[in-house]
Amino acid sequence: MSVSLRRLGQALPYLLPALVVFGLFTYYPLWNVIYMSFTDADFLRAPNWVGLDNYTKMFNAQEFWASLTITTIFAVGVTALEVVLGMMLGFLMNAKTRVTPLLRAAVFAPVVISVSATAILWLFFLNTQAGPVNRALALFGIPPIGWFTDPKIALLGVIVVAVWKGVGLPAVLYLSGLQGISRELEEAAIVDGANRWQVASRITIPLLAPTTMVVFFISLVGTFQSYGLVLLLTRGGPVGSTELLGYYIFENAFQFFQMGYASALSVALFVLLALLAWMQFKVSERRVHYQ
């Protein structure tokens, strides 16, 4: 014990810089948020202890459940598209044509662009009445599509932008995954008379499973807490159709001044994310087990 305690003394200098930063700017404020979730804090008056009121309000709020549903659709939709399209793009980027360098540059380019710039250019690009896309569609007699203004379509519009911005990283991860797979298995399968699709579905894609796992969870955990695009594209509308949980929190905290309630929502989101991380841990553990 004393030896390992002394070793702790040796290790601490290495850990302290990071732990001090986390302590000050993650754990101390987190503690504050948890405490505030039991109060009616609104910054304007001194906070009162209200017990579980904020949590009761949350579970009874139709908006909370609606935003949870929308968040799930958004997260699952974006994640599924990033896995499927990311993989397809990975295959395509692995080909050797004259266009491939262009493709690699184009797919990853949106990753380096900020969310605010992304929102500005897509608001312009997909503007309902007279944006370039709807004007082009009008040439084929298609009436204007309300990408961000039609309650039935707006969430899809936001998903399209999120995938455009985000799929570059999964695509590159798949590309490097593909480059790491030895060709011999595939060649052997072709010798045995398998066609391209069979090779892909029975050999290559299963071999990419570790990449898929990583892409799946990075994407899911990321999209569950993201709301930047919604803040700038739709402000949760129309008719609340894009009200993601993150935006619902932002709205309650910074527009309605209901810090207590917003803190309770934040704690719920935190629990949700921790649950996702725990699932990831379990799944990857099982995978290791079976290997």
Binding site: L123, N127, T128, Q129, T149
Partner: peptide, 13 residues
Amino acid sequence: VVSNANSNLDFCA
């Protein structure tokens, strides 16, 4: 139509 942030432009278009 419901107006939005770009409605001035749509009006002018």
